[in-house]
Design a protein around this nucleic acid. Structure first.
Length: 205
DNA sequence: AATTAGTACAACCGCCAAGTC
DNA sequence: AGACTTGGCGGTTGTACTAAT
């Protein structure tokens, strides 16, 4: 793998310098995102494509919030994690300006060691939802899209309650940062509320 | 004041799927 | 068809900073 002699190239590792950030930003502004393996050839950076991509996505990309996670965002993270588990990139799609890495770090720091009672609550929630998610997934794969008719009443109640909750949090957070949430509502929120079950498999961008 | 423990975050690694040749 | 490349993802590690002792 990585056949073009990565080892011989001796990619630089470790923290990025402001100069490297500048080179990478210039490269992306001229060439756009993607083609990461070409970055070193054209920008003068001694970084692997992987490293460049990571730095851009997690740190340099415009629109990143870089502020503390709000209680509203935390609530969304908790709910979505209960639903999807460690699908950080999927969760990140519903938190504009946040990266999967950021959310993952946040989760590990704040909830990995959290008290067992609340952990159990989350697990219970996830257990209630998981079989239905799997059932739905199977039905999607087999081409049957009429999911609503197959969800039992018990689950419907949980789902409704849960997403009502989540929607509240969503709107509450949006009111705090209206500009960055505008895109979310238009492009993604409807996907979440209207097409919940398809989320995991529709890549964006 | 020095040491230890906990927290936050940046970055790397290995694996995998998709695309290309 | 299959080897190779690339990009994306989740897990993990390293380190700087802060709070507690």
């Amino acid at each position: 793998m990585m056949g073009r002699g990565v080892a011989e190239q001796g990619w630089r590792k470790g923290p990025w310098t402001p100069e490297e950030d500048k080179l990478l930003s210039e490269y992306v502004s001229e060439n756009g995102e993607g083609r990461w393996s070409s970055v070193s050839r054209f920008s003068g950076l001694s970084r692997s494509g992987k490293s460049c991509r990571l730095r851009w996505v997690n740190y340099l990309r415009p629109g990143l919030k870089r502020s503390q996670i709000t209680p509203q965002e935390e609530g969304i993270i908790i709910e979505l994690h209960a639903l999807w588990g460690n699908k950080w990139s999927t969760i990140a799609r519903y938190l504009p300006g946040r990266t999967d890495n950021e959310i993952k770090n946040y989760w590990r720091t704040h909830f990995k060691q959290k008290d067992k009672s609340s952990q159990k609550q989350d697990q219970r929630k996830a257990q209630i939802l998981k079989p239905e998610m799997q059932q739905h997934q199977q039905q999607l794969e087999s081409g049957d899209m009429k999911m609503e008719n197959t969800i039992d009443d018990h689950f419907k109640m949980n789902e409704a309650e849960m997403f009502h909750n989540l929607e509240d949090q969503c709107w509450s957070a949006m009111s705090q940062d209206a500009a960055s949430w505008a895109d979310f509502v238009v492009e993604d929120c409807y996907g979440l509320w209207g097409g919940l079950w398809n989320l995991d498999d529709h890549p964006q961008g």
